[in-house]
């Protein structure tokens, strides 16, 4: 780890001001950033911890939606969202281990956009709105490829607004070593149609599966996707699974998500 300064602002405005310093870096729960620093793969001059920004903490219901503060950790989401959006609480409850869930944050996960992370699948499948200190970004515009998002310099995710679906489920097949998603599929059924988001599978990062969405919107059953094939173009192939295996798992996990949707 290289030397750095750290600031712990208590408001979004102070955090944005602190991030104006050259080579400053926002710090959420540090579940990716701190290991990166330890391996000397990054050398920010200053870390701006968002953990003390109270206006970015917590969960609130807003009409038919849930708003989650950007600095809210996974354990809090798991504990507080179950009554309104069980699939989202279940997803949060199965990220990493208890230590990860009590440190890692939803804003950190979405800002990093790891191609095997869980939260991007929930945000994309829910048609969530990413709320920053500058604007509101629709999930369909927010995710722009692995580790790439619509966020600009000095832009912080202050909250995420999830429309609550009628039924939903997230099914994750874990990569056995990291326990990240080898493939994860989030299926969310709304009154105007079904959205399906796939994580872990693609070099493009999280993405929707439009063929499955059309089939499930017409017939919300596992049978509706059994005849489909997830396209293998640009899928991740590594020591844990080939592109063909991942494509197969996408179909299996999609079917299981439909069966499990509640």
């Amino acid at each position: 780890m290289y030397a750095f300064d750290i600031e712990r602002p208590s408001s979004v405005a102070d955090a944005v001001a602190a991030l104006g310093a050259e080579d400053a870096q926002a710090l959420g729960g540090g579940q990716t950033l701190i290991p990166t620093l330890k391996q000397r793969l990054a050398a920010p001059s200053k870390l701006v911890s968002l953990g003390s920004v109270t206006e970015m903490q917590g969960v609130a219901s807003e009409g038919g939606s849930i708003r989650i503060g950007g600095a809210t950790n996974h354990a809090t989401v798991a504990a507080q969202v179950g009554g309104t959006y069980p699939a989202l609480a279940d997803l949060a409850a199965n990220i990493g281990d208890p230590a990860v869930r009590n440190r890692g944050t939803i804003g950190g996960s979405l800002a990093n956009n790891d191609p095997a992370a869980c939260y991007p699948a929930a945000a994309l499948a829910s048609g969530a709105t990413i709320i920053t200190n500058k604007r509101q970004i629709a999930a369909d515009e927010y995710f722009q490829g692995m580790f790439t998002t619509a966020l600009g310099e000095g832009e912080i995710i202050t909250g995420v607004l999830f429309p609550v679906p009628e039924q939903a489920s997230y099914q994750k097949f874990v990569q056995p070593a990291s326990r990240f998603a080898l493939v994860g599929v989030f299926v969310a059924k709304y009154s105007d149609g079904v959205r399906v988001a796939v994580t872990g599978a693609s070099n493009e990062g999280v993405q929707r599966w439009s063929a499955a969405e059309e089939a499930l919107s017409a017939n919300f059953s596992a049978d509706a996707v059994s005849g489909l094939n997830f396209p293998t173009d640009d899928l991740i192939a590594d020591l844990h699974g080939s592109a063909e295996y991942r494509a197969h798992l996408v179909k299996v996990m999609t079917g299981r998500a439909v069966v499990a949707a509640s």
Partner: peptide, 21 residues
Amino acid sequence: VENTTYDENGQLLSASYMDYT
């Protein structure tokens, strides 16, 4: 689960517990 594996250039692929199970 346990697998020590290299690519064709001799690079260790399972170099951390993120990939070595």
